[in-house]
Write a protein that binds this DNA or RNA. Structure first.
Length: 136
RNA sequence: GAUACAAGCCGUCUUAUCGUUCCUGACGAUUAAUGUCAGGAGAGGAAAGUCCGGGCACCAUAGGGAAGUAUAGCGGUUAACUGCCGUCGGGCUGGCUGAAAGGUCAGUUUAGGACUAGUGCAACAGAAAGAAUGUACAGGUUAAGCUGUAGUGAAAUCAGGUAAACUCUAUGCGGUGAAAUGCCAUGUAUGCCAGUGUUUGAGGGUUCCCGCCCGAUGCUGGUGGGUGGGCAGAUUGAUCCUGACGGCAACGUCAGGGCUAGAUAAAUGAUAAGAAUGCUGAUGUUAAAGUCAGUAGACAGAACCCGGCUUAUAGGCUUGUAUCUUUU
């Protein structure tokens, strides 16, 4: 028996795994469940459009907190990189069978180094798996 | 050689692994999309602030008046400019000359039209800086600051200063802004309610008025439904590099060569190692060079495209000027 969510074993992060539909983002923010895990706020929702076979992620850094584009880019890149390297655990979780919409909102007030962001992101993925299974 | 100032330039590099956007080729495939593999390309001097000027596009051709706003010696440059270059005048600093006044040279700085149209403002001194005439003396009258002088001051019914004070003069300025605009695809309900209007014109365009133009499946409000994708615009351009010529210069002309980001929630990243550079410490030396260890790398991310301006910026390089010092 194969896992319903198939993904290549490589650590890629192509366009298909990024959430860029305005409609889906709006729906995610309106209906999604959320939890806080410093320095992130994570919002998630099972994708209502079942034609997708992958989780989709949107990363957001507030312009109010970080005024310079360089800083926002840096944080986004670090989160993106952490997700790319660690998403396999989300895909390999056997209890998650439907694709998710996920939003990572950076709520920290300072720019954290990559190792911290990565460790926190791994924790958040583990918690996400727990939360999703619980609601089922 | 050191320090200071000014101008100009550069503003880390290499490798490995994993990943990202675009392009090309191969494989696969009926074709296309997609996929796999390989190769190539992939942020800045300010990409920033959005302060000026243009290109480009659209609007109903944008006429007159008022208002507003910008500019302000002269000449040049440019697509254009509030930019830039040259020059004249003024201010400041220094050198030379001279008894001084001044002259001259160099550097630096300067929004630099008009105060014989009006209004306003002004330290100190002074009775008074404008409708007020005091004190002393002299003259003078029926009487009277009516006249003169003294005194204060740059300036006292004689006028002067000030316009990055209002203002005046001259000249320029239609508006909007790539979320413009054109096309394709998908989907839907010119739905319902209320008001108003159709040549006796609702409403709309312009800061205002006149004028002009558009205008009926209309306009305004409420309620309800749908879409929210793609292509062009958009990366070959007032382009970049090299050379020659013209010009004091800004800049222009000609010849040869190059193609150098095009993303769309937004691509150039993460990790590791090394190199060079700066700083600190140790070692070493007459002084260096060298060696070892630690540490640092700023300001900052294209979003239609250009020309400027302004602001931020670790560190380094070059040139010029001034001062000090060393050697010959």
């Amino acid at each position: 028996m194969t896992h319903p969510l198939t993904v290549s074993s490589k650590q890629t992060f192509p366009k298909e795994e990024r959430l860029n539909s305005k409609k889906l983002i709006q729906e995610l923010f309106e209906k999604g469940s959320s939890f806080y895990l410093y320095p992130f706020k994570v919002i998630y929702l099972p994708n209502p459009d079942t034609s997708y076979s992958r989780h989709q992620v949107v990363i957001s850094v507030s312009k109010k907190r970080f005024k310079r584009a360089v800083d926002r880019n840096l944080i986004k890149r670090r989160i993106k990189e952490s997700y790319r390297l660690n998403k396999y655990s989300l895909y390999s979780a056997e209890k998650i069978t439907t694709p998710l919409l996920i939003a990572y909102i950076y709520t920290g007030k300072e720019i954290h180094p990559f190792p911290l962001i990565e460790s926190k992101l791994i924790k958040s993925i583990n918690r996400l798996i727990v939360e999703v299974t619980k609601t089922k």
